[in-house]
């Protein structure tokens, strides 16, 4: 049986995710707000406002504190000659294998918040699925991308 993948992603992922996760979770605030309009207008009951508010505030707090560090601890990857292993997940832990000769293309991308932390993510695409290794240091991400693409090309010639 294989041990867990041996590479970790960049530790700066934690502060970066605190920002993206915290900001992203603000989206859900629309739920109590919209519901509040209806409830205060007398259309429906009022008590769910409190429940919804607690839930979205709790979500924002967790996204900005605990979740990024759990997510970072759970993320690992390993690039071998013939296959790539990814393992990640908070509630559902998922170990994924991508055979290198099935890879169609691989690229790096970077959002504005990730850029301020010098982080990029590597995206691996097969004919059926897309996988992402998030939050690698820019140089590491380039290196990983080049390595995967070299391996994929070599594997193509094998077949």
């Amino acid at each position: 049986m294989r041990p867990d993948p041996d590479q970790k992603i960049d530790i700066k992922a934690i502060p970066a995710w605190r920002i993206t996760g915290g900001l992203g979770s603000l989206f859900w605030w629309f739920l109590p707000i919209v519901y509040g309009f209806f409830a205060l207008g007398g259309v429906t009951e009022r008590w769910p406002i409190i429940v919804l508010t607690i839930l979205v505030v709790l979500n924002t707090i967790l996204q900005a504190t605990l979740i990024p560090s759990i997510r970072w601890r759970r993320w690992s990857y390993q690039i071998d000659k013939h296959e790539i292993y990814l393992q990640h997940g908070i509630f559902i832990i998922r170990r994924t294998l991508i055979p290198v000769n099935r890879i169609q293309h691989v690229d790096t991308r970077q959002g504005p918040i990730m850029r301020s932390f010098d982080l990029s993510s590597v995206t691996i695409t097969t004919a059926a699925t897309t996988h992402e290794i998030p939050a690698l240091n820019d140089e590491v991400a380039d290196e990983v991308r080049n390595r995967i693409s070299d391996l994929a090309r070599a594997a193509d010639q094998d077949v």
Binding site: G89, F91, I92, I93, R94, R95, T96, L97, I98, P99, R102, T126, A127, A128, T129, H131
Partner: peptide, 23 residues
Amino acid sequence: IQSVSGWDNWFQRRRGLKSLTVN
């Protein structure tokens, strides 16, 4: 097979079970 995943959620982990997804 384009990719394959073995995964478990918290409940499955407690019972030593995993699920397999083949793409």
